[in-house]
């Protein structure tokens, strides 16, 4: 009985064949190196033909491997020099892509080693193939996840927290360093010899405890979708006040997603206040291009009574663009 199992460690695969026996062809079980399952096969003819190919399937079809490798065939025990292939580098899709004829006969036990020097994913669209080693993507995502876990714990458990935030209705603990790198306003706050630096306390009277917690969760990378959704108006205000550009943009995108008749005037007001051009444009289009102004007939009179003059001018101009007298 010949064992068809291939053992692997790191980048080395080893197939120990106890006895080739009377057969002329043998294929190994699949073995995994990199992201592919591989097979080795041997065929005895005039030469011993050794083949290396990936298991047919999705991985080998959509992400075919380009392998750089060395093969080595040696008899166990016998005092014979092993046969070592040159370094090959090729695209391997099926069993015809690589075959190595060894001009020798092997009796008894022998071993086939495949040492992969590099494995790349062949690029189907012509760009550069990229190596799967070192596995940078996996490393990066591992590091990111672990950092996020640490930051969340720092916030939630107050680990070495060094600043107290008094909101309108409660107190939170945070870290000067995290606040400072997230916002130039906090950065300056702790730079100068003013009250906050000395007392390590910030009085943020214009935020509620909950919305301030949502802001901190965002800065510490662990905000939940529902909290973002619930507090996005407060977050927008905070992002504008503390100059956190990506959060501001994210809030604007979110507010663009659910404009309707009952909130369009409020949204327009927010867009005007915080100079959100995309949101403002969308609200104006919703009202005038799509004619929804007739749905808010009652509210619009109150709105016009109080709205900023410049905003009124812009609204009027939008009406003029849309309005086509017959």
């Amino acid at each position: 009985m010949t064992d068809s199992k291939v053992e692997t460690i790191s980048r080395l695969a080893q197939w120990r064949i106890e006895n080739f026996g009377p057969c002329s062809y043998r294929r190994s079980d699949p073995f995994k190196v990199g992201i592919w399952n591989w097979h080795l096969s041997i065929e005895k003819n005039r030469y011993l033909y050794v083949r290396l190919f990936p298991e047919p399937g999705r991985a080998s079809k959509e992400q075919p491997p380009v392998a750089r490798f060395v093969l080595r065939v040696s008899n166990v025990g016998a005092n014979r020099r092993p046969y070592i292939s040159p370094v090959h580098e090729r695209l391997l899709r099926n069993s015809e892509d690589f075959v190595w004829p060894v001009d020798s006969t092997f009796h008894g036990r022998f071993i086939i080693d495949v040492e992969f020097l590099d494995l790349k994913i062949y690029s189907l669209n012509g760009s550069d193939s990229c190596s799967i080693w070192p596995n940078e993507i996996a490393l990066q995502s591992l590091a990111t996840n672990s950092t996020l876990r640490c930051l969340s714990r720092m916030l939630n458990e107050g680990i070495h927290a060094d600043v107290t935030i008094n909101t309108a209705d409660g107190t939170l603990a945070a870290h000067k360093a995290v606040l400072s790198v997230s916002s130039p306003v906090f950065g300056s706050m702790f730079l100068h010899d003013l009250k906050e630096k000395e007392s390590s306390t910030i009085n943020i009277e214009d935020m509620s405890l909950e919305s301030c917690m949502a802001l901190l969760s965002y800065l510490y990378g662990g905000i939940k979708q529902e909290d973002f959704w619930k507090h996005r108006l407060a977050l927008l205000g905070a992002a504008n006040k503390y100059d956190i550009a990506d959060l501001k943009e994210c809030c604007e995108e979110s507010l663009l997603e659910d404009i309707n008749s009952s909130n369009v005037l409020e949204r327009l007001q927010e867009a005007w206040l915080y100079q959100l051009d995309k949101l403002k444009k969308s609200c104006l289009m919703y009202l005038f291009d799509f004619g929804k102004i007739y749905d808010v007939r009652d509210e619009i009179s109150t709105f016009f009574l109080h709205a900023d003059r410049e905003l009124m001018i812009e609204m009027f101009q939008e009406v003029l663009t849309v309005w086509k007298p017959v």
């Binding site: 306003v185 300056s188 706050m189 100068h192 010899d193 003013l194 009250k195 906050e196 000395e198 910030i202 009085n203 943020i204 009277e205 214009d206 504008n240 006040k241 206040l273 900023d308």
Partner: peptide, 21 residues
Amino acid sequence: KASGLSFEEHYRNAYNMVLHK
């Protein structure tokens, strides 16, 4: 005599003035 001044409070005041034109 700045050490007793709150950065947040004065930043907020200036912010509100600018925000509200």
